[in-house]
Write a protein that binds this DNA or RNA. Structure first.
Lengths: 319, 319
DNA sequence: TCGGATCGTCCATAATCTTGAACAAAATGA
DNA sequence: TCATTTTGTTCAAGATTATGGACGATCCGA
C-alpha cells in the first residue's frame, strides 16, 4: 500500500474525475491513472466502476475511501508530531563559554547536540581571558557554560581537575619528580592569565602546595602549553580531560598523579528568563548526557600527536 | 512519507538493529538503510542516534514510532476491510439459465458483474431447450435466471417482447407487410422448439393473431435465425433486445412494429436456502442494475454485421 | 594484542516508477 | 450529424528506488 497512491485515490474519489484531480493537484493524468491501477492491483479489487467516462466508487472503493482518509490524517499527524518535536529544536542557540577549552569539549558537546538536532544553528561566543566581554552581551545569549572554582550559579555539568603532565622523552631526560618540591628542579610550561602567571595549585588529601616552576616557555593559550609539553619542552599543568587522548596514545605521561588541583565545576546556566522551550530542554539534556558516565563521544577530536621525531610538530589547535 | 519506509523504521526500532531487522524480514540491509535515510530526509529529522554500532531512538524517533505503529495498523485494517468487502464476493457463482439468450444478455450481465468482482468464478449452465436438464442439478446452482411467459417464482429483472424483423434488402425485394395476414405471403425464418415450430404470437391492444408463416429456413437456434434474417432470407420473430444492435446499425428493420408478443418476464431466483452472503447480495445488485433504465453496458457484444455484400457473412455466434 | 565476525553505510547496476505524448472513446455544441 | 473538446488509458524515455557487493568501523573471543 502506497501513501501516494492512497492520496491519489482519495483525490480522484472526491472529485469523481481523474482529470479534475490531476488539474487540481498538479499531477499528470498518467501518474494518477497508474497509481490507481497499482492500488487496485495491490488490493486485488476494483475501486471504481468505469461507466462511460464516469468513475463510480465500488463498495470496496467506498470502504477504502474511509480508511484512506484516516490513514492520510494519521500520516499528517505523525509528520506534525515529529515536526513539533524537532521544530522547537531549531533556530539559533547562542552559547557563551568562559575559559579556553571550548574546542576541547564545548565544541564536541555542541557537535554531539547538532548530530541530534541538525536544524539548530549554534552561535558560540568564547569569553577569552584575553578579551573582556561586555556584560550586556549576556542578554543575547541563551546559556553560558562556565568553568570556575567556586559554587557559582547554574547547574553543575561536570567537574575537572588540573594535574601535571610531560612527555615520556622529557621524563627520560630529566627524571620523574617524586614530590611537589622536586618541581623546582624542573622546567615548567606555564600559562599566563590576565592577572599573571598561573600557579600550580596541588593537593593530596589535606596537604596543599602552590608551585610556580621556573619556565622558559610561557603562553596564554592552553593549547600551546599542551603542544610544548608533547614536544618535550617541560611539564605542564592541565585539566585531565584535556590530555586524555595524548595520555592514551602515550604522547604525555601523568606526573605526581596523586597530586591534583581542587575540583573545578563546569556549569551551565540559562541567561534569559523564558518558558522552557523544547530547544533549551533538548540542549540541557544533551549537555547532561555528554558528561554522564559511559557516554562515548563519536566524532572528530583535536589532540597533539607526536610523530617519531618530537621536534617535528604535526598540527595543533588553530585559534 | 512512505509506508514501506515506516514499516522498515518500526522493524529497525523494535529490534534496535538494522541487520537483525534485515535478517528477520528478509530484506537487504542496504534497502533498510536507504529507506531510513529517506525517511529522515523526508521528515528532516534524525530518528536514531548512532552510537558506535548502536541505534538509539531519538525523541523524534520515539514520537514517530508511536505514530508509525498506528498508521501501519490502519493500513492493515484498510486492507482487511477491503478484503472483507471483496472476499465474500469471491468463490464460485453457479448460475443456471433457461432459454437461449445467454450470450445476448446473461453473459454480458455476468461480465459486468465480473468487472466489479474479478475474484468470482462463474459457472454458467444453459438449460438448452434441446437438452433436458436434471432437476437435481438445481441443487448445485446458486441462482437460476429464467425466461418465461407466466408469473413464475423469483424476482422479475426485466421484460421483453418478441417482434418481427427483416433486412432492408428483403423489404426492398418483397415489400413491407401491412398487417399480420400479409405474413402468409412472406418468407419466414422459423424457430423450432422441442415441441414443434414456434408460432408467431402477435397482439395489438386486444387483437391477437397467431401466425405460422411458410418457411424454407428453419432452425432451433435463435442466433442462426437472426443470422439468416440479416442475410436477407426472410422475416424473423425475435426478442427486441436481441436485435437492438442490428437495428441500430441498419442491418435489420422492424416490421409491423405495433404488433408484438405478450411481455415475457426475465426473472431470477436463488435456488438454495442460505444466509444472504455478500457474494449473492452483490450479484443480485448487479443483476438489478444491469436491467435498470439508464444502465449502459460497456463491453463486448455479439451481433451480426452485414457488410456490403450480405451474402458474405462475417462472423456470428459460436455455440 | 590480533584475527575473525558483524555492523551500518555507500556505490554501481538492475528494476521500478513518473511523466509527456499519443490514442481511442465519450461527451458536447454548432 | 459532425467537428471539437475532454476523458481515461497506454507507451516509451527519463528519473528514482532497490539491491548485491564492497568497505571501514566496531565488537568479541582466543
Amino acid at each position: 500500500m502506497n501513501i501516494d497512491a492512497l492520496a491519489s485515490f482519495v483525490k480522484i474519489a472526491e472529485l469523481r474525475s481523474l482529470s479534475a484531480a490531476a488539474k487540481l493537484y498538479g499531477l499528470p493524468k498518467s501518474t494518477l491513472s497508474l497509481r490507481l491501477k497499482q492500488l487496485e492491483a495491490d488490493l486485488n479489487v476494483a475501486l471504481f466502476e468505469r461507466s462511460g467516462r464516469n468513475l463510480l466508487l465500488t463498495e470496496a472503493g467506498q470502504t477504502l475511501l474511509k480508511h484512506a482518509r484516516q490513514i492520510l490524517q494519521n500520516c499528517d499527524a505523525a509528520r506534525a508530531a515529529v515536526s513539533e518535536v524537532s521544530e522547537d529544536v531549531a533556530g539559533t542557540l547562542r552559547i557563551g563559554a568562559t575559559g579556553e577549552f571550548g574546542t576541547a569539549f564545548y565544541a564536541q558537546m555542541l557537535i554531539a547536540f547538532r548530530r541530534l538536532y541538525p536544524n539548530v544553528e549554534i552561535e558560540l561566543t568564547f569569553f577569552s581571558p584575553n578579551v573582556l566581554y561586555a556584560a550586556e552581551s549576556f542578554d543575547t545569549l541563551d546559556a553560558v557554560i562556565s568553568w570556575d572554582e567556586g559554587d557559582g550559579e547554574g547547574e553543575a555539568l561536570s567537574t575537572a581537575t588540573f594535574a601535571l603532565f610531560a612527555s615520556s622523552s622529557y621524563v627520560e631526560r630529566f627524571g620523574q619528580p617524586q614530590q611537589p618540591a622536586d618541581l623546582a628542579d624542573h622546567q615548567g610550561i606555564v600559562y599566563r592569565t590576565p592577572a599573571g602567571l598561573q600557579h600550580w595549585r596541588l593537593q593530596k588529601g589535606a596537604a596543599q602546595e602552590s608551585v610556580l616552576p621556573r619556565s622558559s616557555l610561557i603562553a596564554n593559550d592552553y593549547w600551546t602549553v599542551k603542544y610544548f609539553a608533547v614536544a618535550g619542552e617541560g611539564i605542564a599543568y592541565l585539566p585531565r580531560f584535556f590530555t586524555a587522548i595524548e595520555c592514551e596514545r602515550g604522547h604525555l605521561v601523568p606526573l605526581l598523579d596523586d597530586w591534583a588541583s581542587a575540583e573545578r565545576r563546569v556549569s551551565i546556566r540559562l541567561t534569559r528568563p523564558h518558558a522552557p522551550s523544547r530547544k533549551m530542554s533538548a540542549f540541557m539534556d544533551v549537555c547532561r548526557r555528554y558528561f554522564s558516565p559511559g557516554f562515548v563521544f563519536q566524532g572528530p577530536r583535536y589532540y597533539v600527536e607526536a610523530i617519531f621525531d618530537p621536534t617535528q610538530p604535526k598540527e595543533g589547535k588553530r585559534t
